[in-house]
Structure formats: C-alpha cells, structure tokens
Design a protein around this nucleic acid. Structure first.
Length: 392
DNA sequence: TCTGGGGTCCTAGGACCC
DNA sequence: TCTGGGGTCCTAGGACCC
C-alpha cells in the first residue's frame, strides 16, 4: 500500500488577519473581531497582538475589553471572510484533487502519491505558504503527517506561520509533547474528568486498555481516545457530511426577559427564518426543537415530531409555542431562545403529501412567493404584520 | 468574569413492534 | 404470578468544534 501523506492547512487568526489585510493601518495592532464591547457577545477571533493581552476566542467581550481597552474591536464580516476563504480554497485545490474543507479557515489535502509530480512534501508545503502569502496576503500553518488527525495536531502545534512534518514512527514522541487539552475532542469536561481520574498526561492515558477507557469515559470517548493517543486516526473527520441534519437559529437577549408576548414575537421571527432557510436549501423537516437558556445558564430542549412535513412558518411557530408552554412557567427569566428544525429531507424527493390540501400547504406557497420577492429585493423588509405590531 | 451562534454526535431511557 | 431479544423511532440533555 502506498504511504499516505496528508496536509492540514489552517489560516492564522483568520478573521482578524483579513481585517488587517483589508486595512493596513490595523497591522501590528491588537484587533478583536466579535461582539461590540458592552454587549453580551464573545470574541470570534483576535490577532496575535491581541493574544499578548491574554485575549482568546470565545472569551466574553466584556472581559476582553477590560484586558485591552485600547484594542480595536470590530464586528464580524462573515461575507467578506467567506470570499477570502474561497480564494484560498481555490489555491489549495490546485495542489491535489482530494481536498476537504472542514471549516471556513482550514482544510485537509490528501497528498498521497504526489511526490513524483510535485516533489517532497515539505517543499510543496513551503510553496503553498508562499503562494497564499503572495496572492492573498495571509499566513497559513501547515501540518504534514501520515493521517489527517496528526496533520491537524501538527499544524496547531506549529502555529503561527508554522510548518511541521510528523513522519511514520514519530507519532508517540510528538504526542508526548502535547497536553491532554491539545487532543482534538478533549474539551473542558473530559479534561477535568481525566484529571479527576489522576490521568495527567498523554503518556499516562496511553497505558490504559481500550476496555478500561470505555468503562471510565463511555464507549465512544474511550474508543476515540485509545486511538488518538497512539497517533492512529480516530476518524473524527468524515470524508463527507452526507447532508445537513439540522438547522437552527437562536438569539441571546441583551437582557433576560419574561414577557410572554414579546418572547412569542421572537419565536415567530425565528420560525420565519427557519422556514426561509428550509425553502432556500430545498429541505423539508418534520421535527421542531425549542431551546431555552435561563438566567442561571441552565438549558432546556424540547422537541416535537410532526407526522407530516412542516409546511409553514406559522406551523413551526405554533409547535414552538406549545413547547414553550409545556416547559416554561413564566417565572424564570429567559436569556436565550432558539428554534431548530431536524429530520430533514430534500423537497424534490417524492413527498408523502397529506390527502388533503390543507392550510399549511397554502401557507408554504405564500411563503415561497414572499421568499422569492425578498431574494430579489434584498434589503427591502417584507414581514408578517404581526412582527410589526406593538402588542400581540 | 460572565459566558454567541451554528452545527455534529453520543448517551440513555421509553414506546412500540415482531 | 413470570418473562426474551432485536430493531427503530422519539425525546432530553450534554460534550465538543469552529
């Protein structure tokens, strides 16, 4: 069998780097992209200059502001980042037909068997880095390894502007240099659980049998970690996500609230957003999920699966209101509300239509029409009268 | 210090059917 | 009275990732 070679390419501080590239005055300065200070949001990304102040992704924006009041706080310009990302992806694709983008700023390249054509992997990686720097103005870190999982860990380790190759036989030596927290798939909870179990290093974790790990941490996590600490690909990254399984929209209020009418208005708005997205993607759904986060940060999920495909925002709204009624006594203040749709299927597949043309189907037709108008006149607000009314 | 938004997958229990 | 096992679907909660 041919020796496998994978690259993992990961753009450094991507959102912040795009802002610095688009506005050279920001170069060398602490740039923090995310929510505005004073709001309840978090940091989406920050430049390396900002990291020196102790700022990290996902940190509450208020905390970031305290750490670096003179930082440059910018809103997320997702559209722009997607544009830039697409340019980078096109460049990467030129090096191998087998490229797998796994997020807006990272991708795997299967470079197996390209050596005769392109040369040694390390040289190709240097070329890619230069290509992206010269043509897009961004720094990328690249990890090279016999499997995707190690390649990902290698690029993380080498950041920023890094390049690291892990060869066959070097897996465990490399892994021993990492902390348990660096293992992809070990988050805060699993980390604390391991510490509780007196497991403090990757080397220690490797001394346990798969059965013991499964009994301590659950079947999936146990099997996963058993492979991960040996540098065997635990197959976290499926080749393809066969299809989208769910969509959701959620919103955190600027202040916690209990006003039923106002909350229902938000539910109606979210229901419309979900329905529009379903139509846009050509999806149908059967299950509605309501998510609530209370002021004490406890979460509740409630879901209901209809016997037929959901046909209108109105229907999603009604189900969500029923779920709200069943899960909320109007006493606890609500911080976040979300609506989701799952059990998705593509509309063009033969649908099991109800035997009668009910109101919901007509509603869906109306919504499709409104959706098309909205798409044409993006920027013009067309919305249900109820969303505009003061009281409901 | 006060914690976003959008996803995926896992666990575990219960209902129901054969 | 006691009581199988497998499969599938649904619900609720939670961990994790970017």
């Amino acid at each position: 069998m041919k020796k496998k070679i994978f690259f993992h390419a990961d753009l450094d501080a991507f959102f912040a780097a795009v802002e610095q590239k688009d506005n050279p005055q920001l170069q060398g300065k602490p740039v923090i992209v995310g929510a505005q200070p004073g709001s309840r949001g978090v940091v989406s990304a920050c430049s390396y200059e900002a990291r020196r102040f102790g700022i990290k992704s996902a940190m509450p924006i208020s905390k970031a502001y305290r750490k670096c009041p003179n930082g440059i706080f910018l809103p997320v310009r997702m559209k722009r980042y997607i544009e830039v990302s697409q340019i980078v992806i096109r460049i990467l694709k030129a090096y191998t037909p087998d490229m797998q983008q796994i997020s807006i700023d990272e991708a795997f390249l299967d470079m197996t068997g390209t050596e005769r054509l392109l040369g040694k992997p390390i040289g190709v990686a240097k070329q890619i880095k230069k290509n992206i720097k010269d043509n897009v103005g961004l720094l990328v870190s690249i990890g090279i390894a016999p499997n995707k999982y190690l390649a990902k860990l290698a690029s993380d380790y080498a950041k920023p502007d890094g390049l690291l190759q892990i060869n066959e036989g070097e897996q465990e030596t490399f892994l021993n240099k990492l902390s348990l927290k660096d293992i992809w798939g070990v988050g805060q909870k699993t980390y604390l659980r391991l510490i509780e179990l007196n497991i403090t290093s990757i080397k220690m974790l490797r001394s346990f049998s798969q059965n013991i790990l499964c009994s301590m941490l659950g079947k999936a996590t146990g099997k996963y970690l058993y492979k991960a600490v040996r540098g065997i690909d635990p197959v976290f990254f499926k080749v393809y996500h066969p299809k989208t399984r769910s969509i959701s929209n959620e919103i955190t209020f600027e202040y916690d609230r209990k006003d039923v009418a106002g909350i229902k208005k938000v539910i109606l708005e979210l229901s419309h957003q979900i329905m529009f997205r379903l139509i846009e993607n050509g999806d149908k759904a059967k299950t509605v999920t309501l998510k609530l986060r209370f002021n004490d940060f406890t979460n509740i999920h409630a879901q209901f699966t209809a016997r037929h495909w959901l046909c209108s925002a109105e229907e999603i709204y009604k189900i969500a209101c029923e779920l709200l009624k069943s899960k909320w006594n109007e006493k606890k203040a609500i911080r976040l509300i979300g609506i989701g749709a799952s059990g998705l299927d593509k509309s063009n597949q033969p649908a099991q239509l109800e035997l009668f043309e009910d109101k919901a189907h007509k509603n869906r037709k109306v919504e499709k029409a409104v959706f098309n108008i909205k798409k044409k006149l993006s920027g013009v607000k067309i919305t249900k009268a109820r969303l505009l009314e003061k009281d409901d």
